[in-house]
Design a protein around this nucleic acid. Structure first.
Length: 975
RNA sequence: GCGGAUGUGGCGAAAUUGGUAGACGCACUAGACUUAGGAUCUAGCGGAGCGAUCCAUGGGGGUUCGAGUCCCUCCAUCCGCACCA
């Protein structure tokens, strides 16, 4: 029987597509555009596993579909090729990271090309190449040269800020700037030296060097961004992270906090994803209140969202890092405060997070004055107050905040109730809102109104003002690494200057070793002559997110050496219409990209504010690990007698289960023990040992990962298993009664060490790329997390074979006829067209594959080999299985690529039924099925239903109360 | 603790959005063919029962002629955030 030769067919068409540039996207077109983007991969040394292509397959299906629907489609791919693993490999081997990176990219490309994606490879970008990072550096320079004008609500060139300073100083300028920016007049500004002016401007630039507390990871030798730290350890590698003050380049992303938040509303992203970003930005409304410190000139400013509870303030708490601590501490309290502050500061971030429950703190000895009632309130220090949020000062209201409450209880500080109804409550913090009591001017007001009233009062009296706070911090932009973009800046007298634009790219210098220098400087400190005009160049490099924050723009115009992309071209392609990638980038890449895109928009280089119109998060494909069950042999000499050769005995899963549940019958037990001992006897004879198993149910059994490629449907290939590793050559395998050895399984992350990695190349080799594509989609909803299980793949493989046989006889002859399709065949086809179209537009690819299977099954049953049906069928299947579709398309006599045809319109008239089969139910239970013409009036249907014998039986002599007829759905008789 | 999601056969999953629950596929069972195979075809396949029929969508309650779908409540699993004042 002549079978479909997928190997030959797939290779053939992949070559033709590449040779003829079938998927080249044009920057000018009369067609509407569609931009389908995947999150580009980091090319790791392990290569692709079957989980990686999931999103690419989905976006490829959409891309191919959109082409058939007449769109000019941009569907690019590239590589995020700066990164830590290549650098660590370089540190170990001394090999330049570019070499490893490029090898990995070559491997990735080969794997990707095998799957038959319709990528426009001519637009490929690699972020580690100077032609690319030249523009990453260029964007950095523009950020340095910009400030954020709150009045116009956008970024502007620094020149406009300088003009304002020259005219009016900075008191009236509405700009995003550091909190410690000094105030000055126009006269002062104009009297300053250029250096003094530059120093001031650093407070305003969108990127700037700053002495900042950062997440320092000693093991990795670099700082990490907040989103790269999880639970106090590094996201990559899980190394401990500590807080450390270092000179760092920062990005003033906080300037965009409000817009990043506001724009989320209009994005077609999933709600959970928007929630995550909203949460991360963490906007809260409230006010700052000033508390005079008793017997001092100092004024503590506290941020609160609940100024209405001001009369409930019974103490203040400041962060251990607060700069006035020494000043506020009275001599008597000095020893305990010093001790506490030292302990708190030395505790790592991790330790602090580990016990959020325990209450610690000390009294400073000083008092602050509540500005509303002039009451003195004690000032404490506690590490539950974060230096980085708000002002690092909290006005504690133990009656409405549970942390304050726990603190007050622990240190026996007073609790004053300010909300009516909390008097009888065990924990007053459970009632957050109500009528104010014990609250002076706020008494009797609703708490929500009182918030406004309190702010108004504070503003009028001059000791407070309304204030919005964000959780989001400015982003640290420096990494103490080699394998990243050099920062195009140098230092002269401690002031940063940019190198000239014409000097870009500032290429990575060669160095002899890739580790930090002996003096603790970043690896670039090893470079010879790393200077510009004789001044030292910045030694840190950019973080991973720099390159990925704008790559989607570079795809539009990848060869441009005059600009990162030509404005007209960017305006043509505009927003990414569909962006596919994992949820893990919610607070990293997706936020930074929006930030940079917005900045480029503000400055007029691109015409759209938000980069990604629609976002879909594909779920991760997990690994399905298989286990074998090894009997731990014990002899009289002890468990680990290394001098004697130990047999490897493996029990099948079914036996292990029954042993664990003590379900083995005596007879079974004896059979198994006899079998094991027989085999052990053979082993003993050969090796001169004397192993035996006395009692199978007291044997110690340990599960062991076994390579999933040795297992099929959880049945172990025992011969392959014995050849897997030398020590298994003589393995004793105890199977089930039917002689198969069953393995156990567990769902885990795919990883080499668990032997559960499935390589797409192996699947393609055995089943072909089309099968892989179909099967990945068939596996379940795109957005769901799901384990890979090769078991079901036969089904889709059979489907392709059946499709092939609609066109070919068993002998391999092409048997398509020109007979006119029957109404029944047309109905099958058009039903499938409709479903396929709806499914792609709703991104539910799994049900589409099922629909194709049903369609092919039905046509096979009808022995339909008609061109009029099959021609359209291959077109609608082509986005999923492009190779076989292209082959069949050409066999049908077409000479162009199937990509160049159009998606068939479904004809609704083929789908209309003249009769409909109504399920008829009595009291909501289905009792019969009856067919009626579609246009039959409800009354007539009702009469016929009631007259029918089947229903009379159910009515049982009673008369119906009512009869409900829902057109095309159901007839319900209520008794 | 806060926020979000999910829960349907042995397994992956469908369900026209309130209308015949389990489509399609895997696995399994029986049969056919056979050059004996990891091929193909036919039939069966949630549970109970010979059957008519009854019971089943995490548990309990509610709305409705009718609930996997809507409401309330509890439980379980997964994912984010986590002292954010």
């Amino acid at each position: 029987m002549a079978e479909y030769n997928f190997r030959e067919v797939e290779k053939k068409w992949q070559k033709v597509w590449a040779d003829q540039h079938i998927y080249r996207a044009d920057n000018q077109s009369g067609k509407p555009k569609f931009y389908a983007l995947d999150m580009f991969p980091y090319p790791s040394g392990a290569g692709l596993h079957v989980g990686h292509p999931l999103g690419y397959i989905a976006s490829d299906i959409v891309s191919r579909y959109k082409r058939l629907k007449g769109f000019n489609v941009l569907h690019p791919i590239g590589f995020d090729s700066f990164g830590l693993p290549a650098e660590q490999y370089a540190i170990q081997t001394g090999q330049h990271p570019a070499i490893t990176t490029e090898q990995n990219i070559a491997r990735y490309k080969e794997q990707l090309k095998n799957i038959g994606f319709s990528f426009d490879w001519e637009r490929e970008v690699q972020t580690h190449t100077p032609v690319y990072y030249r523009w990453t550096q260029w964007i950095f320079m523009q950020l340095f040269n910009s400030w954020y004008n709150k009045e116009t609500d956008k970024a502007e060139p620094v020149e406009s800020l300088v003009a304002l300073f020259e005219a009016q100083g900075n008191e009236t300028v509405q700009a995003e700037c550091d909190d410690d920016t000094p105030l000055f007049s126009a006269g002062e500004w104009n009297s300053w030296s250029p250096e003094e002016q530059l120093k001031v401007l650093l407070h305003y630039r969108l990127t700037f060097p700053s002495e900042a507390v950062v997440n320092w990871c000693t093991a990795l030798g670099t700082v990490l961004a907040n989103d790269e730290v999880k639970d106090g350890v590094s996201e990559r590698g899980g190394h401990p992270v500590e807080r450390k003050k270092m000179k760092q380049w920062m990005m003033r992303i906080t300037a965009y906090a409000d817009r990043l938040l506001k724009n989320l509303q209009d994005l077609d992203w999933s709600e959970p994803m928007k929630d995550m970003q909203t949460n991360w930005i963490g906007k809260s409304f409230g006010c700052e209140l000033q508390f005079k410190v008793d017997k001092s000139d100092r004024v503590l400013t506290a941020f609160t969202t609940r100024p209405d509870t001001i009369y409930g303030v019974t103490f203040m708490v400041i962060a251990p890092e607060h700069e006035w601590i020494d000043e506020l501490t009275t001599p008597g309290q000095e020893p305990v405060v010093k001790e506490y502050v030292n302990a708190a500061v030395n505790r790592s971030e991790r330790e602090r997070q580990m016990d959020v429950k325990s209450v610690t703190g000390v009294f400073t000895g000083s008092y602050a004055i509540n500005p509303f009632n002039q009451e003195p309130i004690p000032i404490w220090v506690a590490d539950y107050v974060l230096a980085g949020y708000g002002t690092g000062v909290v006005m504690a209201v133990p009656s409405s905040d549970d942390r304050d409450y726990r603190f007050a209880k622990h240190f026996e500080l007073p609790v004053r109730l300010v909300i009516d109804g909390t008097q009888d409550m065990e924990d007053p913090t459970e009632k957050k809102h109500g009528i104010m009591i014990n609250s002076g001017i706020l008494d009797g007001m609703d708490s929500k109104k009182a918030v406004q009233k309190a702010i108004e009062h504070a503003e009028k009296e001059g000791f407070g003002k309304a204030k919005v706070n964000f959780k989001m911090r400015d982003a640290v932009f420096s990494r103490q690494r080699y394998w990243g973009e050099p920062v195009p800046a140098y230092f002269k007298d401690d002031l940063p200057y940019l190198i000239e634009e014409k000097e870009l790219p500032l290429e990575l210098p060669a160095i002899d070793q890739y580790r930090p220098t002996e003096t603790g400087e970043p690896p670039l400190g090893r470079a010879k002559d790393w200077t510009y005009k004789g001044y030292p160049i910045e030694l840190t490099t950019m973080p991973g997110w720099a390159a990925s924050s704008w790559y989607f723009l570079r795809y539009m115009d990848p060869g441009n050496d005059q600009a990162f992309a030509q404005k007209e071209v960017v305006d043509y392609w505009g927003q990414v219409d569909l962006y596919l990638g994992g949820t893990e980038h919610a607070t990293g890449h997706l936020l930074y990209s929006r930030f940079w895109n917005m900045f480029l928009f503000d400055r007029g280089w691109i015409g759209h504010e938000e980069p990604f119109k629609k976002l879909i998060n594909q779920g991760m494909i997990q690994g399905r690990s298989n286990f074998v069950y090894r009997v731990v042999m014990q002899d009289s000499a002890g468990e680990d007698n290394k001098t004697v050769k130990t047999p490897e005995v493996f029990l099948s899963k079914g036996i292990v289960d029954r042993i664990e549940k003590s379900n083995l019958t005596r007879a079974e037990k004896e059979i198994i023990e006899k079998l094991v001992n027989e085999r052990l006897g053979e082993f003993n004879a050969k090796n001169g040992t004397d192993w035996t198993i006395k009692s199978i149910d007291s044997a110690k059994i340990s599960p062991m990962h076994v390579d999933v490629s040795l297992v099929n449907n959880d049945v172990l290939d025992t011969e392959a298993f014995k050849n897997w590793r030398p020590e298994l050559n003589e393995a004793i395998i105890i199977p089930e009664a039917d002689q198969t050895y069953l393995c156990g399984y567990e769902i885990e992350k795919m990883s080499k060490s668990k032997y559960n990695v499935v390589n797409p190349d192996d699947i393609i080799d055995r089943y072909g790329a089309d099968t892989l594509r179909l099967y990945e989609m068939f596996l379940g909803p795109l957005e769901q997390f799901k384990p890979w299980n090769t078991n079901g793949i036969d089904g889709v493989f059979k489907f392709l074979r059946k499709l092939w046989h609609l066109f070919h006889s068993n002998e391999g002859e092409f048997i398509v006829t020109d007979d006119a399709p029957s109404p029944q065949e047309l109905k099958i086809l058009h039903k499938t067209i409709k479903k396929a179209q709806e499914d792609i537009e709703n991104y539910s690819f799994n049900t589409s594959v099922s629909e194709f299977m049903i369609c092919v099954n039905e046509l096979s049953a009808l022995k339909c080999h008609k061109r009029g049906i099959l021609q359209d069928l291959v077109v609608i299947i082509s986005p999923y299985a492009p190779h076989i579709a292209e082959e069949l398309w050409h066999k049908l006599g077409n000479t162009d690529s199937i990509t160049q045809t159009t998606f068939p319109e479904f004809n609704a008239s083929f789908l209309v039924e003249s009769e409909h089969e109504y399920p008829v139910s009595v009291n909501g239970k289905m009792r019969a099925k009856m067919s009626f013409p579609l246009d039959m009036p409800k009354d007539d249907i009702e009469k016929q239903v009631l007259a029918s014998e089947a229903i009379q039986k159910w009515l049982d002599g009673k008369s119906p109360k009512k009869v409900i007829v829902v057109p095309k759905k159901i007839v319900n008789v209520v008794v």
